[in-house]
Design a protein around this nucleic acid. Structure first.
Lengths: 154, 154
DNA sequence: CCAGGGATGTTGACATGTCATCGAAAGTCG
DNA sequence: CGACTTTCGATGACATGTCAACATCCCTGG
């Protein structure tokens, strides 16, 4: 095994910045979401693609692919949201194994009420803190990082 | 209430990059850590500052500040790591409320064994995917984002 | 001194996320 | 068709993270 090449100061700064800042940023946004709209981050994540789908119905498998979640994570989260009345499960006609997730009226009302303030918070804490030039660099750079991850996580 | 200003394509790209990196990059690194070293991300996070402290002893309060965790999170995690034999709790002489966390021999052996491969993975997935110019932009930019967060998260 | 406010750590309840496993159904290929 | 493999979703066990409530203890103003 070759000798370990540790991170130099600039590398460590960028690395700590990414993980530390991003975790805090996400935490801050989620708190505002819970406080102002009564929705958790996980709930918001699933409600967005559901609200954009025709009739507000998406197959569980496709929902998972849209947000990058595994099957069991989707299943657990849908169960919790079903209890809260945000979504409902239905049978899938085309595939007897499948499960369709339907946005309820209450679910649609929640996401419609929550989205504007959430987008405004993303803008306030993240977009507005960066210059145009930085935005031009950060988007493509982070996409390149994602592209290099093992397929399982990509 | 003013009309919502949604994110344009460039803004959405940067934002998706942030979310994706936080979730997938961290997940990929943690999986390698668990697979190769038998340590979770939370365990690694606490073991690093402990291994760098004199005698491997840090007060719980300071440990929390070093890694940006709240008190109860530190307490729960230390309890789990105590069960695994990675750390031990001791009384704090200077402050009877306090709790000192000591790295055990097994804990030190774990972090020493895990660190080289983990640093290599950070380099492989993150540092090496970025150019020097991008690193120069990203570090300071995210530090500016951090400065704009509510104090609780800063 | 000492009463009250702040700091510290623990705990229980609960939400979230991962993994292994299971049963059922669909697809594949002889 | 029939055996084998793959996909899909649900579930239980467990690790992690947040919040509120507590019990202690420190510190400061009067």
């Amino acid at each position: 095994m070759a000798e370990t090449r540790w991170l130099d100061e600039r590398e460590a700064r960028a690395w700590r910045g990414v993980i530390g800042v991003l975790q805090r940023l996400i935490a801050a946004l989620e708190r505002e979401l819970v406080r102002d709209a009564g929705l958790s981050g996980a709930e918001y994540t699933l409600l967005v693609p559901l609200s954009e789908a025709p009739d507000g119905v998406v197959r569980a498998r496709d929902l998972g692919r849209m947000v990058g979640w595994e099957r069991s994570r989707v299943s657990h989260q849908v169960s919790r949201m079903e209890k809260r009345g945000l979504v409902a499960r239905e049978e899938c006609g085309e595939d007897a194994r499948g499960s369709m997730v339907r946005l309820t009226d209450a679910g649609r009302a929640s996401i419609v009420a929550a989205a504007p303030a959430h987008v405004a918070a993303v803008r306030r804490y993240f977009i507005d803190a960066l210059t145009d030039a930085e935005l031009e660099v950060i988007g493509p750079a982070l996409e390149r990082v994602l592209g290099r991850l093992p397929d399982v996580y990509a």
